[in-house]
């Protein structure tokens, strides 16, 4: 459970870091992103479980947390900007086709 909470916190921080990364915005020609928290604060939040978990949970939980955020961090970074928007558009298109088909 503790590992799960730690993963959730770190994922949240990573998602914010991905969203406001300046180089990513530059490469994909996006407008200036809203900065929720400074990068330093987000990194501190993301990595804080690495310091807290060893004292409150067995070592296995720390290992699982670390593995999860490296794999999950890749997943978050891998998604191109606007992917949620594209998924939503695709679903809307699907719905429109189904309605058309039903007539």
């Amino acid at each position: 459970m503790l590992a799960l909470i730690a993963i959730f916190i770190s994922f949240g921080a990573l998602a914010a870091l991905v969203q406001q990364d300046p180089k990513r915005a530059r490469v994909f020609r996006q407008d200036a992103r809203r900065v929720w928290l400074s990068s330093r604060a987000l990194w501190l939040l993301c990595l804080s479980p690495s310091v807290i978990l060893p004292f409150v949970a067995p070592f296995a939980h720390w290992v699982i947390w670390f593995g999860a955020i490296t794999a999950g961090g890749w997943g978050l970074a891998y998604l191109r900007p606007g992917v949620l928007h594209r998924i939503r558009s695709a679903l809307v298109q699907c719905e429109a086709r189904m309605l058309q088909w039903r007539g």
């Binding site: 939980h61 699982i64 593995g67 794999a71 999950g72 890749w74």
Partner: peptide, 19 residues
């Protein structure tokens, strides 16, 4: 092997192996 914590650790190892 990543089998130290049941399905939780194996799921993480599976994801990392994929990456």
């Amino acid at each position: 092997f990543g089998d130290f914590s049941g399905l939780a650790s194996r799921a993480v190892w599976l994801a990392l192996g994929t990456v």
